[in-house]
Design a protein around this nucleic acid. Structure first.
Length: 423
RNA sequence: GGAGACGUGUCCGAGUGGUUGAAGGAGCACGCCUGGAAAGUGUGUAUACGGGAAACUGUAUCGCGAGUUCGAAUCUCGCCGUCUCCGCCA
């Protein structure tokens, strides 16, 4: 959530920046400023009246102690009158604050200066590419056939047990998942990220904290009996570790990594997008998260992009890095880089990571702050990225490395998988 | 799930209706003391919002929410959480 004071001081800039994200309800910005004006007015009125009540109450106490009943009674009468004003003021104050927050929650984060204009993925900018696209045999198979051929994943079984989009990994397929998770976590902890194993369900407050609510309500599975949400990414529970926290400047940066299954309803998806591993309701992912000094978040974003790139390189997969345009970015992000790997048999790029700087948008909701050198409390910046999401990595590994007699795994995985080939 | 106890600041801990935003202690920060340190000693040490150039100041906050009262950390109700015992259980 943007800070009201920032909006007040930078009204025109806010509107201009929001346009880059194709957010055109500019009236909302002025509504927010007007509501904030009203809030101040009402609060001043309330504070003044309450101050008088408080001081009168103290005086009443003094009179009572001295046994001056008449004086006390006179003051009580005055307070009674004041109180008839206070109740409506208080109601109005709560009301205005609530309306202000509601409006503020509707404003997406402002895109940073580097974000290109554009409405659709075609406007994303390819920052760089790496790896070599393999040349496959005529008889090469898409991953959903390879997983059957080598008995790695049973999609139909998952449909029977739960529903479509909930695959069952079997044998080598299950082991490959485990190997990848282990490898990714080790890779991240070696770079100084502290490993977490968080809850896979969160309460409403946490879902608001990272911005899943109220924006993406329909995308999360919801356990109504307990009012819990199944996490769509480890970002949610792990970033909330620092909700309502004031850190010391020396504690920064906070670097965390976590494996978790991710649950996504993916309402509205269909067709070739959801074939095989391309889009699932439940999948495995390892996430990296940093909470940093606001002056550092730009450079930390680059650091995280380089980190993920190094990891992808170690898997010998052809990849490219995209700088997302305003229209393709998430609600909470100020700048996002997507990583895609080339899935050779499908002949298409698949997103396997998304690295974003949220600046103070999440931390403002989370109230995650730090005390600076001058003893002033300010908001930290938060960033996160996938490192990495498994299914599409698996799809690409299988398709790109298939040979007549099996699938050759990249050297980085041999130790973890316990073999060089899937046969 | 049942019964009971409890929930105060960074931590420990006092506080059962009236200058209590909160005693006391510890920790931490800065200073004095010291050759240096320890000990000792002095000062400071919550957050949010409003007003103010600032000093400072008003309001709110003692798990959360509502209520009683002129006045609530203190009384009442609801919720959440923790602990103990019982039940159940991987």
């Amino acid at each position: 959530m943007l800070q009201v004071n920032y909006i007040r001081q930078n009204r025109d800039k806010v509107i201009e920046r929001l346009a880059i994200k194709n957010f055109t309800q500019t009236g909302l910005v002025d509504e927010i400023i007007a509501l904030d004006d009203e809030r101040k007015k009402v609060q001043a009125a309330f504070d003044n009246t309450q101050a008088r009540v408080n001081s009168a109450s103290k005086e009443i106490g003094q009179f009572m102690r001295l046994g001056q009943k008449h004086e006390a009674e006179a003051l009580k009468a005055e307070v009674a009158t004041l109180k008839t004003n206070i109740d409506p003021l208080k109601t109005e104050m709560t009301n205005v604050e609530k309306r202000l927050t509601e409006k503020l929650l509707l404003l997406p984060n402002l895109p940073s200066d580097k974000v290109p204009q554009g409405k659709t993925p075609e406007n994303n900018i390819v920052v760089r590419e790496g790896g070599v696209k393999p040349t496959l045999e005529e008889a090469a198979l898409p991953h959903w056939e390879l997983t059957t051929k080598y008995k790695l994943i049973d999609f139909e079984l998952g449909t029977k047990i739960t529903g479509s989009g909930f695959p069952v990994y079997t044998g080598k397929g299950a082991k490959l998942q485990r190997a990848l998770v282990q490898y990714f976590l080790d890779f991240n902890t070696s770079a100084g990220y502290v490993e977490y194993l968080p809850p896979f369900m969160v309460n409403e407050e946490s879902a608001y904290g990272t911005g899943q609510l109220p924006d993406k309500e329909g995308q999360m599975y919801y356990a109504a009996a307990d009012n819990f949400y199944l996490i769509p990414t480890a970002e949610v529970p792990v970033t909330n570790v620092y909700r309502d926290t004031i850190l010391k400047e020396a504690d920064l940066p906070v670097k965390m990594t976590a494996y978790s299954p991710c649950f996504r309803r993916e309402a509205g998806s269909y067709g070739k997008d959801v074939r095989g591993l391309n889009r699932l309701h439940q999948f495995e992912k390892v996430e990296i998260i940093q909470i940093v000094h606001p002056d550092k978040s730009d450079e930390v974003l680059e650091e995280m992009v380089n980190h993920v790139e190094k990891l992808l390189k170690s898997l010998d997969l052809p990849y490219r890095i995209l700088l997302l345009c305003g229209g393709d970015m998430g609600f909470t992000s100020a700048i996002t880089y997507d990583f895609e790997v080339y899935s050779a048999a499908q002949g298409r790029w698949l997103e396997v990571s998304s690295v974003s700087n949220f600046q103070d948008f999440q931390t403002n909701r989370l109230k995650c702050r730090f005390k600076d050198g001058a003893g002033k409390t300010q908001l930290t910046h938060s960033l996160n990225g996938s490192s990495l999401a498994l299914p599409r990595i698996v799809a690409s590994l299988l398709e790109n490395n298939q040979q007549a007699n099996g699938i050759m795994l990249p050297p980085a995985l041999h130790q973890y998988f316990g073999a060089e080939w899937i046969m």
